[in-house]
Design a protein around this nucleic acid. Structure first.
Lengths: 247, 247
DNA sequence: CGTCCCCTTGAATGAAGTCAATACGCGTGG
DNA sequence: CCACGCGTATTGACTTCATTCAAGGGGACG
């Protein structure tokens, strides 16, 4: 599922079995996890997008992560006592729920599973760091460009992006809350980017007209997301993104 | 060392032994880890402060974490391929270095050590998320207040803060890079906070004159940092902060 | 006693926020 | 089919917060 550790066929099957155990479907724009509660399960996103966010007393909201297919949701909740973030769907969502029990069973049955969990957690932390850098030190255009590059690479890794376009279910309001900008200013930023022929959109499909320029503007680093050398994002996504275990 | 898991006396001793293996001292304002390199060790801070940051091409810098005594530095580097951040000391620093080997030995010898590592990683991630919220949705005064509250609580947990004051080795420049603000504006923010009798400083010792007000301004949540109920920050720090393992 | 780094201050500028009005697309129900 | 409502996108005018640039101050240290 996540291209980080190469499981054997048997392990893969075991994993699939566990993930098939309890599959849940949620409609678009519904809350999965509420801040302050102690969720029973962690979730693995199978289809659709979700976002993780914190809301301040006065209503200000900051999205802290976008969850795409293959991502884990709230892996921290079994160690920390309660959720410090909320999670809501952006699109209709299909997730596998894993109980604490199921998780520890997997850890004991699949030798490399623990490594996979670590990889995923550290990856998420790395993305989180870069988001801090974005909101702290990039201006609105740079932030937007960085978000688009990140989403492009991540979607590409799981075969959900064309060579030059991505689906975009987020509203401008969602983006505003993700980038720490107001929705009005997001709109203006997007317009200026469209005027420069960097992007174009038709409904919920966004074309990245000049990916190289976007990366340059965003100061997007290719070693970000620790993309495997064997994982060539330029080729068609149908081509399997071969996982090579480091070390 | 980290108040998260209660080790037995024997385990504690084993841990101390490992940490004593290779102790390194660094002078103030020196680089420990450079972005892009693959460090040989992870570090446990014993004394002093350090900061983790990313630098963009054009020199803009964003501090992504402050490392205090008890904190782990760069635990991700054994899983991810190379450092995606730099780390520099703020004060003279004493750290224990652990090789990958030493780390995995500890994991196998101390049953709960892996849990401790997880706790630390998820804790760091939680702080990182809150920093994203800060730079994204808090104004300069709120950010500063939040940083001070966070440092107060974290220092208090390791017995390094008085009831109403903290040491502050960071320059206003460092704070600027941590909060995503310019140093000039940090200065103005601090002055306005001093004028409101929220803080006062004498050299590198900062008094938090009205912690309740600071928390209110920062919208600082007490469940942030997942402070254990048994860990009362109001009492004297000399009083041991008893660790209670959750679950 | 000079130098360097850090802190402080002022004036001008700029990026993003606020408020408010309008437009658009889409599904619902009359 | 059209009117309506609702959420989202767009636009303009104005304000605010923060940056920029530039200059001066103050303490530590050689």
């Amino acid at each position: 599922m996540r291209a980080c550790v190469d499981f054997s066929a048997k392990e893969e099957a075991r994993l699939e079995l566990a993930l098939a155990e309890r599959v849940i479907e949620k409609e678009a724009r519904s809350e999965i996890v509420a801040e302050g509660t102690q969720p029973e399960h962690i979730f693995v996103v199978k289809e659709g997008w979700a976002c993780q966010y914190r809301t301040l007393h006065d209503g200000r909201r900051q999205v802290t992560a976008i969850l795409l297919p293959g991502d884990l949701c709230c892996s921290h909740m079994f160690v920390l006592k309660e959720a410090d973030v909320s999670v809501s769907t952006l699109t209709p969502l299909v997730v596998s729920a894993l109980s604490r029990q199921a998780l520890s069973t997997l850890v004991s049955e699949i030798p490399d599973f623990s490594d996979a969990l670590w990889w995923q957690a550290l990856m998420a932390a790395s993305i989180q760091r870069e988001w801090t850098v974005s909101v702290g030190r990039r201006d609105s255009t740079e932030r937007m460009a960085h978000l688009l590059c990140e989403l492009f690479v991540r979607l590409r890794m799981v075969g959900l992006a064309d060579a030059d376009a991505i689906p975009m279910p987020m509203t401008q309001m969602d983006m505003a809350d993700a980038l720490g900008i107001t929705n009005v200013h997001i709109n203006r930023t997007l317009q200026s980017m469209r005027a420069k022929n960097l992007i174009r959109f038709d409904r919920r499909r966004w074309e990245l007209l000049d990916l190289a320029a976007l990366k340059r503007i965003a100061m997007f680093e290719d070693n970000y997301l620790h993309v495997r050398p064997g994982c060539n994002l330029d080729i068609e996504p149908s081509d399997p993104c071969v996982a090579v275990r480091s070390g």
